[in-house]
Amino acid sequence: MREKGVEKLEGCEIRTEYEVFEVFVQKTQADPHIHVGSVVAPSPDMALVTARENFLRREQAVNIWIVPRDEVHATPYDDPDWFAREFDRKYREVGGYSENGRLWKRYRERAMHLEDIVRDLNGTPAGNSGKRDGGKGS
């Protein structure tokens, strides 16, 4: 797909075609780079500038990647087998263990979730759990 970029027109005029670069933007250093679209540019440097002007006129970011489109290797869209899910994969997911809540009830406790741990680590005032920890849970 890479355009050679130069061809003759009307005998003397030289035409210019830029290369396509895919653009990936990283919003904060805690985020991954996310594909936002593409630009055409004559060089990687110009692609970075064009990407900033096209995709970051408002949003904040800390980093941009541009990748020549030819260097992107992708799975086909028209081959659903690539992403086949032959089996039920509930066992890999949080939602596959929803019975824990019911089981814990027998012991007058509740299931623990990642969100609770993060919240408590961040010192956010705890809601129900706080009340319970100081009360009958002990």
Binding site: G5, V6, I14, T16, E17, Y18, P42, S43, M46
Partner: peptide, 12 residues
């Protein structure tokens, strides 16, 4: 601005 586009392509 054609000459600018051409120059950019050539410089690369």
């Amino acid at each position: 601005q054609r000459w600018v586009r051409e120059a950019l392509v050539r410089s690369r």
